[in-house]
Computed example of a mutant assay.
Amino acid sequence: MNAAEIHDKAIVIDGLICAKWNRELFEDMAKGKLTAANCTVSFWENFEGTVRNVVEMNQLIEANSDLLLKVRTTKDIHRAKAEGKTGVMMGFQNAHAFEDQIGYVQVFKDLGVGIVQMCYNTQNLVGTGCYERDGGLSGYGREIVAEMNRVGMLCDLSHVGPNTAKEVIIESTKPVAYSHCLPAGLKEHPRNRTDEELKFIADNGGFVGVTMFAPFLKAGINATIDDYVEAIQYIYNIVGEDAIGIGTDFTQGHGYDFFEYLTHDKGYARRLTRFGEIINPLGMRTVGDFPNLTEALLKHGFSERQVVKIMGENWVNLLEEVWGE
């Protein structure tokens, strides 16, 4: 089979998208033949604000039901593939929405949230993010991990501090993930993971989704799809072919205000970082370019079987293990 045929046949999953949700994006997802995506519905929002975001996402899925369906189980991912739609997996980039209520974990699971990042860049009640001194997982955090394990919710560690991440990996009875990260071995950055961290999560049954967010790539805004594949290859060589997938971190359609919100603590307080200009790698400018990634992986020597795993099959296996269905 050629690259286009392999892409058509494969389940294609993006482990993290926080784009501007609208019809134009959903049409681009269809163009890219994206089977499912972890779509962020919470950054700094509290319980009530996050519920409102879930309501809005439900309304978008309903209004665009010719293109989208809501994912609660891996069966829904297979259904999205069969129907030629994109499955929306609702996820958080911060456990802040749980506030101090362990019972909210079940509430959000019932609403369809299947993936939650423990911290977003800074300290919360669970643990510490990657932009400040990391005190590790709190006692409450251990209870949250246990509850997420119980209800079947994936612990995401992408923006989490190294100590907190390690303790979640040890604490969790189910596999956990960096849904969207890059290797520090190619570029030093607080958001990138060392070889030791990557090996540790894989050795403990975890998973790594590789991002292409330009500020974290070695070539920055000059990066091409080949630079992205280089990062995938780097991580692949550490974690192996069963523990790796894609998590682009597409921010398609967003402007200056959105990135100001992301780069300040709580969305409004102290500045944590500056991203500078953000240009996605040449060849992966939009979600619609996903077929180019299948082609690039094959061109760089990955086998058809390995490409199918990386593009989505590994994600499905991970989620089935965590979600239980």
Results as ranks from 00 to 15, higher is better:
C119W: 02
G152V: 03
N124Y: 10
M148C: 03
Y140N: 00
I169P: 00
G161N: 13
G127Y: 02
R150C: 12
N163T: 09
G152H: 07
Q117Y: 14
Q117L: 12
D134N: 07
M153R: 07
T128H: 14
C155S: 10
G136S: 05
L154F: 13
G139H: 07
Q123M: 14
M118V: 15
C119I: 07
S138R: 09
C130D: 09
T164N: 02
R142M: 13
P162H: 06
Y140Q: 01
H159S: 14
M153H: 05
T128K: 02
I169L: 09
E132V: 05
V116H: 00
R133L: 13
G152K: 02
L125S: 11
E132L: 04
L154H: 00
G141W: 01
T164E: 10
N124L: 06
N149K: 08
Q123T: 13
L125V: 10
L154I: 10
T122V: 14
L157S: 06
G136L: 09
L157M: 12
P162D: 07
G129V: 08
V145Q: 02
I144A: 01
G152F: 08
N121R: 02
T164F: 01
D134L: 05
M148K: 05
R150V: 04
S158T: 15
V126L: 13
N121G: 02
H159G: 04
G139F: 12
I169S: 02
N163C: 08
L137Q: 00
C119T: 15
C119K: 02
S158E: 14
V116N: 06
V126T: 07
I169G: 00
V151M: 15
T164H: 05
G136K: 05
G161C: 04
G136R: 13
R142F: 12
P162C: 03
S158H: 11
V126W: 05
E167A: 11
D156R: 02
T122Y: 08
A146S: 12
S158W: 14
C130M: 12
C130T: 14
V168L: 12
K166M: 09
A165L: 07
T128M: 06
G135R: 10
G139Q: 07
R142P: 03
V160E: 04
L125R: 15
N149L: 07
M153E: 06
G135S: 11
D134Y: 00
V116Q: 08
M118G: 01
Y120N: 10
V116M: 15
C155R: 04
T164S: 04
G161Y: 09
T128R: 01
D134M: 05
N163H: 09
A165C: 10
I144R: 03
R133S: 13
M148S: 11
V151P: 01
M118E: 09
C119E: 13
E132K: 03
N149E: 10
V160C: 03
G129W: 00
E167W: 07
Q117K: 10
G141N: 01
